[in-house]
Design a protein around this nucleic acid. Structure first.
Lengths: 357, 357
DNA sequence: TCAAAAAATGTAAACGTTTGCATTTTTGAG
DNA sequence: CTCAAAAATGCAAACGTTTACATTTTTTGA
């Protein structure tokens, strides 16, 4: 809007002008060669005579020339860029996969364009549109809950994408993830196997988070499978805050028949819940057992140490990025991968019944 | 490398070809107008007749046309992109500022290009070079420890940049941050004012982290100012892991004259240190006081709750992004801002001496 | 020393938009 | 209806690279 691109500032520019952007043309001029030769000196050094190359490289050095990846993208029709959308970065479990994605992308010569959707498919769609406009070569999404028109657009634009944090059975939705349902089932089965009969659940909001939904379903199915009743007062969907875990736990304890074990479908809430129990003078696991989910580093530093489900966040991130890059470069469909989880039994779980409520 | 850009696939393409990228030209063709009109319909709707506009918009819808931001960047010479380099995303305090930067950037119509340097100026330089190549409109860096040639390159390319997490006194280095030295001094002064005379320090590695250096200097200056001796055995530089905080604390406790108070220059290490004390059966704060730094959410959920320094991570991120965007759009120099910190006294600090070591 | 082969370099088009200016179409007043 | 003014649309250049092909220079081998 400010200046017309028509105005040819360059031709009027003295050879050593201010901080104006230096282009390959400037370098060519100063080195007394054509732009083609500069380009070759930079990309295929063996294709230009040593003397010329050195002269060019010197000018590049002097002028701090940085080649314009945008122009290159224009020609090559690849941006060497991967779009990543996560629901939040504040839960360090997403930070973990993000860091691994970023690292693997960088290793492969790609840069990560980051979007944070804050659990809103709508906002995600806006974000993703922007990433598509930036011509990302691939798109890594979180979970399976997306605006349908977004997915259509991604497909129409031929941009490879994959899902993390949620195992998709659907062939058309490649995913690199573990199985939330299976992982949660293992946790709940473990509590039942310890003898617990009154179980509580704290999880994320299933309306905006299909991973939370998988885990909740696993919980409910488990109870049913074992012939246990599900008490709605013992199921709480909350945001990912320690505070929320604490208040959910408080609500359950204030119930006529409090649970003897609580499955918190993520560690953040579990830490809050655990903290509240101790504040109320309850023994964990003597009075009540708690299982978390994610295996955050902090879970080894709670008192007592938290039993939880270890999730392959780093591995998932790395694999996702590698698979994405392979798909981009080989122009091949994205490969789905299922990763495994592991129940880490620490100190917050025991058979029930030491105290009667 | 694969296909020559010369080959004009387009002219040979049947009107309803596969998933090939749809360009403004395709839309123009199908709508029976020129590319200029399509462009105007999209960007200045009032400049085209309603009937035409609708026809075009319908085609856009049908073809899932996504306009090529790369081509637009090419012309406008702005990428609507902000580069952000942080040392790690795993420490949730950086995640906090990152999230706020991302949010503010998005609100302003910008996308964030993320780089994680892992505390290496060398890696940072590589990353930043890549961001410059991607023609970021601005660059947000962490701390003041950078490859000098990188800074020169940033300047030569006329890309505005700013520093977060470290207050720069130098005019040439705009920063949006709080003062690490001042903040750390407040924490140590507080411990001294409680009566502590043997103080320990756990902090990050000062050779790669100038924020840690500021905090360490504050610690040492404080002791000296109060006429206290500094015992090298009570100063530990460690990585940002709870485990590291724990082992540093262990080392100090195993010393002939253990400290009665320890300043951990970040909460991660503080949580580890606190955990170790309790494992050894020490009363906190009865036997030993601990102060952290960052005010992570988790610090309200440790037993006892951690005294720490609250850092304006979110505010800093938001301001940094806003200031950067203002600088980009108004072509004005970046404004420096100093933010304030606050000592949050919780439960891990008390006068010394209940127990004699 | 010379011609042919090989190597180095140059020329110009292309990538997908936006936009100043030119041209065409529509509108509206008389 | 006419014609001038206004509105709508089209044309074509430009952004900064890369690269096929053309041209020039260097090398090689008799």
């Amino acid at each position: 809007m400010a200046s017309s691109p028509r105005t040819n500032r360059r031709s009027a520019k003295p050879p050593t002008a201010g901080t104006d952007k230096v282009t390959i043309r400037d370098v060519a001029l100063r080195a007394g060669v054509s732009t083609a030769t500069v380009s070759r000196a930079l990309n295929r050094p063996d294709k230009v005579r040593a003397a010329t190359r050195e002269r060019i490289l010197k000018v590049v050095e002097e002028t701090h020339f940085v080649y314009d990846g945008i122009a290159v993208s224009m020609i090559s029709r690849r941006s060497r860029t991967i779009g990543l959308i996560i629901p939040t970065i504040m839960n360090s479990i997403y930070a973990a996969s993000t860091q691994s994605i970023q690292r693997a992308a960088q290793a492969g010569g790609y840069t990560v364009l980051l979007g944070v959707s804050e659990f809103s498919p709508k906002q995600e769609a806006v974000l993703a549109q922007r990433l598509l406009e930036r011509r990302v070569d691939g798109l890594i999404l979180t979970g399976g809950n997306h605006d349908p028109s977004l997915i259509k657009k991604i497909r129409a634009n031929g941009v490879p994408f994959l899902i993390t944090w949620k195992l998709m059975r659907d062939q058309d939705w490649p995913s690199v993830s573990f199985d939330n349902y299976k992982a949660a089932r293992a946790a709940v089965d473990f509590l039942v196997s310890l003898g617990h009969r009154r179980l509580g659940l704290v999880c994320g909001r299933t309306d905006v988070n299909d991973r939370a939904l998988d885990r909740r379903r696993a919980f409910e199915d488990c109870l049913q499978r074992h012939g246990l009743s599900t008490n709605p007062a013992l199921i709480h969907e909350r945001d990912f805050e320690m505070e929320e875990g604490a208040s959910a736990m408080a609500a359950m304890l204030d119930t006529p028949e409090p649970p003897t074990a609580v499955f918190c479908a993520n560690d953040i809430q579990a830490i809050g819940a655990l903290s509240l129990c101790r504040e109320r003078g309850l023994e964990v696991p003597g009075d009540i057992s708690i299982v978390g989910f994610d295996d955050l580093p902090a879970t080894s530093y709670t008192r007592p140490k938290l039993t939880t489900v270890r999730v392959p966040a780093h591995d998932m991130g790395r694999r996702a990025a590698e698979i994405m890059i392979a798909s981009i470069e080989r122009r091949t469909p994205v490969q789905s991968v299922e990763l495994q989880t592991e129940l880490i039994v620490r100190e917050t779980t025991a058979p029930p019944g030491r105290r009667v409520f």
